[in-house]
């Protein structure tokens, strides 16, 4: 295996594009090294992007936030402006693994690992985040929900890598939240998860909403029916019941070692409702 730590995005793209064998991007490495240890991957080339300028920066931009692909999740929590604006996104990212793992892992890596249970992804999807993809033909942008192509697969092409994640500006009277279900209090992979972002009018009526579910399908789901269920409501009991039902209806999980299909369907509804309640309160709704 070769290890390279290029200084520019251009060099990184060139290395990845040129490699004939298996090439992987290294940011936090918390998935890559585990797979290498298990013998699941034997890379020929690893490109460490942490020495590329800007990759470890969180920038406030005219259109929101730009988060470098190598920003460890622990750093997100230390950025007061980001926590204030997108608490749900930061919550999701702060739940990956342990404190130790958060010192290394990144949202971009979490997304590219393409696990349906990725903790940072539902929050990003609910927030309407986009990724900036660097590649041999320049950069392109994609909605976060369009990046995974299936379990463990992304739509990224050879030579491409995510260089940043962009979060939009948050409209007034908006709130977001992420909740996951795990059997323990820490260290587990989400059995089910839900991210909700919503915006209210001055009267507390929901005018816009995005609801994303994790670990209930091969990729994180953006559930439009669940959003519809609460738009136009003040998140009253009937709206909550509709949301719960819509989220459960959208879930199409499997039985596996982490949970049963039945359990995931039930809890998807519960978590969507609880996350919506939290987001609604954060948006100033009463």
């Amino acid at each position: 295996m070769r290890y390279e730590s290029p200084a520019t995005t251009k060099d990184a793209v060139a290395l990845l594009a040129k490699e004939k064998g298996q090439a992987f991007v290294l940011a936090g490495g918390t998935d890559l090294l585990v797979k290498m240890k298990a013998g699941m991957l034997e890379p020929d080339l690893v490109v460490d992007i942490k020495r590329i300028k800007g990759m470890k920066e969180i920038k406030k931009t005219a259109s929101g936030f730009s988060i470098g692909a190598a920003v460890p999740c622990a750093a997100l929590k230390e950025n007061a402006a980001l926590v204030k604006t997108w608490p749900g996104v930061v919550e999701g990212a702060s739940l990956i693994g342990s404190k130790q793992v958060q010192g290394r892992c990144t949202m971009a890596g979490n997304l590219c690992n393409a696990s349906p249970a990725a903790d940072s992804v539902p929050g990003l999807v609910a927030a309407g985040a986009k990724v900036v993809i660097a590649g041999p033909r320049g950069t392109r942008k994609l909605a976060v929900e369009d990046v995974p192509a299936g379990v463990g697969r992304t739509v990224l092409k050879k030579g491409e890598f995510i260089s940043a994640i962009e979060l939009p500006k948050k409209p007034a009277r908006s709130g977001d939240a992420y909740l996951r279900f795990i059997p323990r209090t820490e260290m587990d992979i989400a059995v089910v998860s839900a991210g909700v972002s919503l915006t209210l009018d001055a009267k507390g009526v929901i005018t816009a909403a995005r609801v994303a579910l994790g670990a209930v399908a091969p990729t994180v789901l953006l559930v439009k029916e669940a959003a519809k269920a609460i738009i136009g409501s003040k998140l009253d009991d009937e709206a909550k019941a509709r949301l719960t039902a819509a989220a459960s209806a959208a879930a199409r999980p499997i039985d596996d070692k982490r949970g049963t299909k039945e359990f995931r369907i039930d809890v998807a509804g519960v978590l969507a409702r609880r996350a919506a309640e939290l987001a609604y309160a954060r948006a100033g709704g009463k």
Binding site: R184, T185, E186, M187, I189, K257, R258
Partner: peptide, 24 residues
């Protein structure tokens, strides 16, 4: 211990063999 239909152990690690952590 969670065995699959193939008789293989599916959770041979501390990630999915869940011993209590400090916050539990």
């Amino acid at each position: 211990y969670i065995y699959g239909k193939d008789g293989r152990l599916q959770n041979a690690g501390f990630l999915d063999y869940r011993i209590p952590v400090c916050s539990d």
